[in-house]
Simulated assay, not measured.
Amino acid sequence: MKQRTIAKSVEIVGIGLHKGVPVKMRLEPLEANMGIIFYRSDEGITIPLQIENVVDTKMATVIGKDGVIISTIEHLLSAVYAYGIDNLRVVLDNDEIPVLDGSSSGYCMLIEEAGIKELEASKKAIKVKKEVEVTTKEGKRVALKPSNHIIYDFSIDFEHPAIGQQAFRFDYSIEEYKENISRARTFGFLHEVQYLRSIGLALGGSMENAIVLDNTKILNPEGLRYDDEFVRHKILDAIGDMALLGYTLVGEYDAHAGSHHLNHLLTKKLYESEENYEIIDLEEADEESKVFQTAYARA
């Protein structure tokens, strides 16, 4: 199993969710062992995708360096991670990744337009050896558990008639990701949107790029893409947040009411002790390599 990048550069222009301003974004191939790197062309600052570069997790996952930030990276990273891309340069001329339609399906299409290129270097993955967990007194929980597969298991419980209790278990493959996860949109409540706009956030948010709910119902005239679109989007976000590990994950992610903040704490906790994980070479790890070969088979 070899490392992956994209076959050619691709570019889009879109609106940032919070600032509401146009952003030009270009994805560029990188050589082996370079990882995922962000570059703010307007500031001349490079920000590697590393846990220590996370600067905010309240409304989105935000990375930064020397006072320069890049916000709302999780949807793009979810698609990049799902396609098994190890090396990529993301060039932006503003401080936020375009939101597109609020899901990651547009990024899937962008990656497929670019094509995937295998490199000579062997692919590495991070395998969970010992369960790690982060919990809150309110009962929220995120955990990583040992497994020879790649599983995302998520549940939510909202006191809202259009959401309620939802659960979804995702057994990773690219085809399953495209079909069952990538189209799930971000969501928000009308009263929250109004507050966020009052403090200069969510300025680019609309029913074109999010599911919007009032106190009783979904306001989007087209309705939902899946009956349980809300929990599927939570999995989409979690996959993007786990990209901060720097390697594709082999293990089970299990969460109830997880968030960007808890996901960030979870990645940090996994790395606290080498007893929790091992970095495996997929040229040598036969069982895990077969999992990836199956997952990538039709991509």
Score class of each variant (00 low, 15 high):
Val91His: 02
Thr46Glu: 15
Leu88Ile: 14
Gly67Val: 12
Leu27Asp: 11
Tyr107Ser: 14
Thr57Lys: 08
Tyr107Gln: 13
Pro29Val: 05
Ile63Val: 12
Ile6Ala: 06
Tyr107Val: 11
Glu52Lys: 15
Asn94Ala: 15
Asn33Thr: 05
Asn94Asp: 15
Glu28Pro: 00
Leu27Ala: 09
Gly106Pro: 10
Asp56Phe: 07
Asn94Gly: 13
Ile73Ser: 10
Val21Lys: 13
Val23Gly: 05
Gly106Tyr: 08
Leu49Glu: 11
Lys19Tyr: 10
Ala79Asp: 10
Ile47Cys: 03
His75Arg: 00
Ser41Gln: 13
Gly67His: 04
Arg89Glu: 06
Tyr81Ala: 05
Val62Ile: 15
Glu74Cys: 08
Ala79Gln: 10
Met25Glu: 10
Arg26Cys: 01
Val13Phe: 01
Leu27Lys: 14
Gly14Ser: 10
Leu30Arg: 14
Glu11Ile: 04
Ser103Ala: 11
Ala82Asn: 06
Asn53Arg: 13
Leu77Cys: 12
Ile37Gln: 15
Thr5Ala: 06
Asp95Met: 07
Ile63His: 02
Val68Arg: 04
Gly16His: 02
Thr57Arg: 08
Leu27Gln: 11
Tyr83Phe: 15
Asp95Ile: 12
Thr57Asp: 09
Tyr39His: 07
Ala7Ile: 04
Pro48Trp: 06
Ser71Ile: 00
Asp56Glu: 13
Cys108His: 11
Ile15Ala: 00
Ala60Ile: 10
Leu49Thr: 09
Ser78Arg: 10
Leu110Glu: 12
Thr57Asn: 12
Ser71Pro: 07
Gly64Ile: 09
Val68Phe: 03
Val99Gly: 07
Val99Gln: 01
Val91Ser: 09
Phe38His: 05
Leu17Phe: 01
Tyr39Asn: 02
Tyr107Thr: 14
Ala79Cys: 09
Gln50Pro: 03
Ser78Gln: 08
Thr61Asn: 12
His18Gln: 08
Ala32Cys: 07
Arg26Trp: 00
Arg4Gln: 15
Val62His: 03
Ile85Thr: 03
